[in-house]
Simulated scan of single mutants.
Amino acid sequence: MNKQEALSLLETIKYPNLDKNIVELNLIETLEVEGKSLHVQLNLQNEEALISLVKTIKELFKNHFLDISVDKKIKKSKSLHYGSSLNPNNRAPYAKKVIAISSGKGGVGKSTLSANFAVGLAQHGYKVGLLDADVYGPNIPRLFGLESEKLIWNEKNKIEPHENFGIKIMSVGFTTPSHDTPLVWRSSVAISALVQFLEDVDWGELDYLVIDMPPGTGDVQLSMAEELPLYGAIIVTTPQTLSTDDVSRAIMMFKEVRVPILGLVENMSYFEAPDTGKIYEIFGKSKAKELCQNYKLKLLGKIPLDIEIRELSDIGKLPIAFAEEKNKKIYREICKQVIEEA
């Protein structure tokens, strides 16, 4: 069998779950035929597809060659360290504006705001992507009702983002075998995964890329400021002193890396009794105005501690789309202010 005959045989192999063969998808990087030896090198990164294709190729050629080797092209490692906050890289040239949503500590409702904010932008007719960068606590899949979804690779050998509510979504939560699988990653591995999500996902052209950041002021926050020209950040806090202490540090971090802060959102700001309408400050008196005055920030909104918001979020029905009008209006007003600022 010569090289052309081997190529013709490879054309009969379909890429898993696609109706196209591996030759027309340009996945054959190298094809070498020497006597009874065959070497095929594939240009793809999907490990599951690679395992399947290696098995298929060896089975197909076993009666034609004594020695069959199939491997993949080694992808050149991505550079992660040559950007700086003063002169950041642009890992997302497909997005007109990149907005980071961050907090000083976990559990303040940052992911819930990220999800509703992204959908709010889409409701204004913008093309929106949402990247879940909270690698150790990825909640975006559940908020969108996508907690059972896994990574999908398309015919361009790119990761296909999942879609819901009119936006494109990517999360490290799609990479785990089950929802309770922990990601025990060092920060360098987490950053590498996020860079891959920026560069290897088929986002298409976006007006906005919203990034749900992990809490705190660590490597991921710094790396995002170095690898993306961030349009700005939205900071989320609660009235609790423990939260405002931490959010102050987050504010100063963004100021130090020269990322504009678009505004502050105070979540769980108050509880309104459904029977009497009386306001209770469960987490203490609101400190939003004080924070904004101290750090010269804009107060984008105060979101109540509301059972409807919690219940809808738990079942993948985002409040900005399914809640009563008073709760929808809060999220829409936050979006409106950011859009008008642009």
Rank of each mutant, 00 (worst) to 15 (best):
K105P: 00
K110Y: 02
L38F: 01
D246G: 08
L80C: 08
I57W: 03
D132G: 09
D134Q: 10
T244N: 10
L25T: 04
R91E: 06
D134Y: 11
C292N: 03
L121C: 06
Q41L: 02
G125T: 07
G316W: 02
E11P: 12
S187R: 14
L66P: 03
S188G: 13
Y295V: 05
I99A: 04
H179S: 15
N89P: 13
K36R: 11
L121Y: 02
K298N: 14
P88H: 05
M213E: 01
E32G: 01
R91Y: 13
Y15G: 08
E199S: 09
I303H: 06
Y94I: 07
N294W: 01
K73I: 05
S178P: 13
D246C: 06
K326N: 15
E311F: 01
V189I: 15
K156C: 08
V23M: 07
A342R: 11
I74R: 13
T30R: 04
K255W: 12
E155I: 05
L299K: 02
K110W: 00
M268N: 01
M253V: 03
D314Y: 08
K62N: 14
E149S: 07
L130P: 10
K72D: 07
Y94K: 11
I251C: 08
P229K: 11
T56Y: 09
K150W: 08
P215V: 14
G107W: 07
K289E: 15
K287Q: 12
P16T: 09
K317C: 04
Y126A: 13
E29F: 07
W153N: 03
Y231C: 05
